[in-house]
Each structure stands twice: as C-alpha cells, then as structure tokens.
Write a protein that binds this DNA or RNA. Structure first.
Length: 419
RNA sequence: GGAGGGAUCGCAUAGUGGUUUAGUGCGGCCGCCUGCUAAGCGGUUAGGGGGGGAAACCCCUCUCAUGGGUUCGAAUCCCAUUCCCUCCGCCA
C-alpha cells in the first residue's frame, strides 16, 4: 500500500507510476475521500473535546444540570453518527488504497508487457545435444518417475504424482537449495503454516485484488498460501524491530497453491504449471537505504543455484508493464530446458520497498530515540521446484534414455543416474 | 467439540462508573555521585490520527485483546468475537 500522505502530497508521481504500469488511476477518488475524511474527523474531534469538558464539569456538580445533560445526549448522538460516517469513508478509502500497486522504481525500463523485459546477463551455454532431446513429460513417463494419469485421477487436471526417483529428485533439490542458502548465504530456515488468515493475505498484497487465484476454505476463512512470501511477510506483522537487529534473512520451503483461474488452457502439458507446487523462497526484511543492493544480492543467491546445477540461465529485468503488484523492481531468472525448448521462469526476485511493510505494519527504529519507519521487504524464489526438476531432467538426459544426476545432488540422491 | 479461568504501558502488577492526564515495581534511556563496578539519587519512558508552525515544537483526539451496547461520562457494567491457560473428549 502506498502512503496516503504521499498520494496527498505528490499525486502526479503516483499517476505517472500507474501510467507506466498501464493501470487506471484511482488517485482522484482517493483524494476526495481523504478530504472528506479529514473534514469529518475535525468535526467529531471538536465534539469529543467538548463532551469531555462537559463531563468533567458534571462530575463536580452537586445537582444534575438537566439542560446540559440533554445537550450532551444530542452531542453523543451526533458523535455516533459521525463515527459511522467515518467508518464508511475509511472502508471505502482503504479498499481503494489496497488496490493500488506499488510505485515503479525509477530505474525500471518502461514497457508494455513481457516482450519489453530486458536480458541483463546470461550464464552457461545453450548447447545442442547430439540426439533429439525429449521433453520431460516423455522422460518422466518412460522412467516411471512422473505419473500424470494418477494425478488427474486423484485431484483433476493440473495435478501429477512424482514417484521413485522423481520424488527423490525433487526432495534432493529442496534440501540442496535450503542448505546452500542457510550455510553459504546466511539465511535462517523457517517452516511456516501453509494456510493463513485473511489478514495475512491482505498484508502480503494478495487480497483483496487477487482472490481469484487463491484457494480458500470458507468455513474457517483460511487461505492456502500461493507462495511462502505470504506467511513469511506476516512473520513480523505488527512488530517494531529494535535498532541493530536488521536485516532478517529467511529461507522457507513450502508447497504453493494457485488456482490459475486466469490461465486455463495455458501450459497444460507436463509439470510446468500446476495447482500445487513446491518452492524454496528467499525473503529479507531490511533497512530502506540498502534494499536496492539487497535485491542484487538476492538475485545472485538464486543464480548460484542455477550455476551449481550447471543449468544455463539468463536474468531479465522486468519492464514496468510486467512488474508484479507488490514490486517496485524485479528480476526473473529463466533456465533453459532443451526438451521443451523454452526458457523456464524459475525465480522472480522483487524489492517491495515499504509496500508490504505498510500493509503489514512492520516498523523499525534505526537508532534509540529515532522515529519509527517501515522496513523494506524483498522476496525471491530460490528456486521454484517443478521447473528446476524439468530443467534437470531435460538437460541431463542421456542418449540411452537415462538421466545423469548433477554433481551437487549426488550425495542427496545416493545415485549418479536415474534409470 | 464441552466446562471453567484469564487478557491493563517492554515485563510484572494496581485499578469495580467521574481528581486516571492509567498508579507502582522491574527493565531501558539520560544525568548526578563514585578510583572501577554495583548500589544510591534525580529525570525520562508507547503508538495511530487530526490541526497549527519555515522549523525546533505546540495543541486536540483515539488506543487498557477486538467489535458493539448502556451512560452526560467506561480499563471499570452488559453482549458478541478472538486469543491464551486448566480439565474432559477426539486425534497424526
């Protein structure tokens, strides 16, 4: 959420930022509600001050002053009705504010959609294999490690079962990634709940705007996390972080659940896009002046997974039109999958600056006695599992139909080859 | 799921309708004192919102789990909800 004060002080900045994203502006509506709100508050507060004064006088009188009591009864009624007007106004205002996306970082290239994203670097060689590479769905079926039919039988379309080496490969990747980020990059492992309260979804920015994409248990109003970003953001919700404690760096493994209602019919083949997938997520809470640098470091942490697995990859900077709702600036990492012959998005790393911190009320003090400020939050996949499984299977496949196990996974897998 | 008990300032507690501008202790911070440390002494100790001011700052208002209600006036009385604790039931 943007600061209402900022919108009030510099509405043009906000309008321009929304235009860069190709979003309609609600700035005028917000400003007029804000004006109304301040007017109502001034009125109700002066009535309150008056009532307070009168109550004090009444308490010191021996006889009940009937005229004053009658007047105060009216004042009480007026306060009550103004309060409900303020509540209504604030609900409306808040709903608008919660739907405004983050400001676009000035360094972000302006563009319309993903075709305007910019490749900032790439690593590894996309080499042509000397045999016809199979897509992972064929490999998976032949090796008996992915079972699409049973996934559909159990849960419907966009579900699959990993079994045998397939399941173990995914588990090995999770363990490898967690260990890398914990031991070499200084992240603290957390295992959060996979179902969260509504307010967590508001805090992370998934509600109210993206309810369509979430699984929801209506009976208890519990929401299934679409990414670990949601519970980890809320880890410090409503907290004040004392001087000297930041940064906090967390790595969390979770399953992720997405309805993918918007993309029915897209990427239906294989395990690239399912309603449930696993992910290892990086998350940082940092002081504002370092969040730009911390984003670069986070991307490097995620990239390291790719090069340790020897998977060719490229890093894209997202243009303004492709930027996610929470992000001021984002990089995607894509690895090459020779079987399906495409670049797979395995990570998206974003600086959300104070956007989620404001929604979630996460503040810190830089020094004893200093004013409270909102922290900056960053998140990035490190990495998303099924797509890494795809890239490993397709890149390490051998002419005889077996799949070699990447060096760094051998100790986790206990084998050199999947056959 | 059932039955009871509870939720007050960072922590611990006092507070059963109006000098509560929420007291006290601990902790924290700032002084003083002290050869050092401890002790002692004095002061200080939250957040949101609104208004004024160039600013330092000042004024108002809200917040005693949350939301309603009663009342001229609510931490205090009533109702609902949430969470925590104890016991019972169920359970990986």
């Amino acid at each position: 959420m943007l600061s209402l004060q900022l919108i009030r002080q510099d509405p043009e900045l906000v309008r321009e930022s929304l235009a860069k994203r190709g979003e309609a502006s609600s700035v005028d509506g917000i400003l007029s509600l804000d004006e109304e709100r301040r007017r109502l508050i001034q009125e109700v507060e002066s009535l309150r001050a008056r009532r307070k004064q009168a109550s004090k006088e009444i308490s010191q009188m021996r006889e009940k002053p009937e005229a004053l009591l009658t007047e105060m009864r009216d004042v009480g009624e007026r306060i009550k009705s103004l309060d409900s007007e303020i509540t209504r106004n604030e609900e409306e205002l808040n709903d608008l504010l919660l739907r405004v996306p983050n400001l676009v970082h000035p360094g972000v290239p302006v563009g319309r959609d993903e075709s305007d994203n910019v490749v900032v670097r790439s690593w590894g060689e996309v080499k042509t294999l000397d045999f016809e590479p199979l897509p992972h769905w064929d490999l998976g079926i032949r090796l008996g490690i992915i079972d699409f039919e049973r996934g559909v039988k159990i849960s419907g379309s966009r579900f699959y079962v990993l079994q045998g080496w397939g399941a173990k490969l995914q588990r090995a990747l999770i363990a490898f990634m967690l260990d890398l980020h914990i031991n070499e990059h200084g992240y603290t492992e957390v295992y959060p709940p996979f179902m969260v309260k509504r307010e967590c979804m508001l805090g992370s920015g998934n509600l109210p705007k993206f309810a369509d994409n979430l699984y929801h248990d209506a009976e208890d109003d519990m929401w299934f996390v679409p990414t670990a970003e949601v519970p980890v953001t809320n880890f410090h919700r409503d907290e004040i972080i004392e001087p000297g404690l930041l940064p906090f760096k967390y790595v969390a493994y979770t399953a992720c659940f997405r309805r993918e209602a918007m993309s029915a019919g897209k990427d239906t083949r294989g395990i690239k896009r399912g309603h449930q997938f696993d992910k290892v997520e990086l998350y940082k809470f940092v002081e504002p002046d370092v969040s730009d640098d911390e984003l670069e470091k986070m991307v490097a942490d995620a990239e390291e997974v790719c090069w340790k697995l020897a998977l060719p990859y490229r890093v894209l900077q997202l243009c303004s039109g492709d930027l996610g709702f929470n992000a001021t600036k984002s990089y995607d990492i894509e690895v090459w999958a020779p079987g399906c012959a495409e670049w797979l998005e395995v990570s998206s790393c974003s600086n959300c600056i104070d956007f989620q911190a404001r929604r979630s009320n996460i503040r810190y003090r830089s020094q004893v006695g200093e004013k409270l400020q909102f922290v900056h939050t960053l998140n990035g996949s490190g990495l998303a599992l099924p797509r890494v499984v795809i890239a490993v299977l397709e890149s390490y496949q051998q002419p005889d139909g077996t799949v070699a196990v990447p060096e760094v996974l051998r100790s986790y897998m206990g084998t050199d080859v999947i056959s």
